[in-house]
């Protein structure tokens, strides 16, 4: 555990030796978070206290260090929650000083449980999703959830952390609740992404980027407002048999610079219309001979399935992608979300 966390935090320590981080198997939660050169963060999962992360050194007073420790702690809590780390093994791991690979290597199954959530039931709508984790941990995530606002609008999030590995997974684990909370609190999708971006740029200072698309669907009218930070444009599949269109409009991805001002695009879903969201794992899917699935094949597949429900579209498209890859585990995470108005 120690090595794992040090590896993750290492780039934050501008002067070597200014920062050490370890996991402490303490019996009681710590009273003070910052005590002299010592910064602690309790690890709690589902109300159960498991121990704490301790960062020591003059650098702990820097805001980036506390933000990093927070991100790592949240990441660890989510991994424990998802079964990626055995809670009972946390203290033992601290003694064993085992490496990052052994401690934080998520199995694809665990990665799946970290990302996948059942879509809520929304009367009048058909919501479907598909997620297939890559061989090496990627950073896709998505979420469909009901907002605590008048009219109970539906929040729609799909995102992709660029790059691979533990950092991408931790950033994903950190970013998802941040976007979720931002969308609950924000005036709209663009505001939600602006807030999320500010946290990523000003506080976390990560070098990874996140492409993210956030939508807010007014359930009664079928109107969805969309803000897109560098993500693949969603596809609108009209019920009248007309051409499938990309919903364009957006701005730069999250994590580059702040403030981020994104336009909001409004789309109206008429009864029978569907909106399909995806990550580049779909279009970039590759065969052993190097051929890519591509956008044309994706649109043709959706076109062939448009007579069915949102579930049918997601099932057909995911089957087409895995069939195309001849059943191999994908190189990149594959995520598909469809929102259909009935």
């Amino acid at each position: 555990m120690t090595d794992a966390i040090e590896s993750i935090l290492r780039p934050f320590a501008r002067v070597p030796g200014e920062l050490t981080v370890h996991f402490e198997d303490a019996a009681t939660p710590s009273s003070a978070a910052l005590d002299g050169p010592r910064l602690t963060r309790d690890i709690q999962v589902d109300g159960r206290y498991l121990g704490r992360l301790v960062a020591e050194g003059p650098a702990v007073r820097e805001r980036t260090i506390s933000a990093a420790l927070e991100a790592v702690a949240i990441g660890i809590e989510r991994l424990v929650q998802a079964g990626g780390i055995d809670a009972g093994a946390l203290p033992a791991a601290a003694d064993a000083r085992s490496g990052i690979a052994a401690e934080l290597a998520l199995s694809r199954l665990q990665q799946r449980s970290l990302v996948s959530l059942e879509p809520p039931e929304v009367p009048g709508y058909d919501l479907a999703s598909y997620y297939e984790p890559a061989r090496e941990i990627g950073g896709d995530f998505f979420e469909l959830f009901v907002l605590r606002r008048r009219g109970r609008p539906l929040g729609v999030v799909i995102a992709d952390v660029t790059g691979k590995g533990i950092a991408a997974a931790l950033l994903m684990a950190f970013a998802r609740p941040v976007i979720h909370a931002a969308l609950q609190a924000a005036s709209g999708p663009a505001d939600a992404l602006r807030r999320t971006n500010r946290i990523l740029v000003d506080e976390l200072r990560t070098a990874l980027f996140i492409t993210a698309l956030v939508g807010r669907l007014e359930v009664r009218t079928g109107r969805i407002s969309i803000a897109n930070a560098g993500h693949e444009p969603p596809l609108l599949v009209p019920s009248d048999g007309g051409p499938i269109v990309s919903v364009e409009g957006g701005g730069r991805m999250l994590g580059m610079s702040s403030p981020l001002d994104l336009p909001e695009t409004e789309v109206e879903l008429a009864p029978g219309d569907r909106l399909v969201l995806y990550t580049d794992g779909v279009t970039d899917a590759i065969t052993s001979t190097g051929e890519r699935f591509g956008k044309d094949r994706m649109i043709a597949t959706i076109d062939g399935a448009r007579g069915g429900s949102a579930h049918d579209i997601v099932r057909e498209l995911s089957a087409a992608v895995s069939g195309f890859c001849e059943g191999m585990i994908p190189v990149d995470d594959v995520t598909i979300v469809a929102v259909g108005r009935q």
Binding site: S7, G165, R205
Partner: peptide
């Protein structure tokens, strides 16, 4: 340079 394996960078 940012270390893409770990992904964190102190500087922008």
């Amino acid at each position: 340079p940012p270390d893409p394996e770990y992904g964190w960078s102190a500087l922008h």
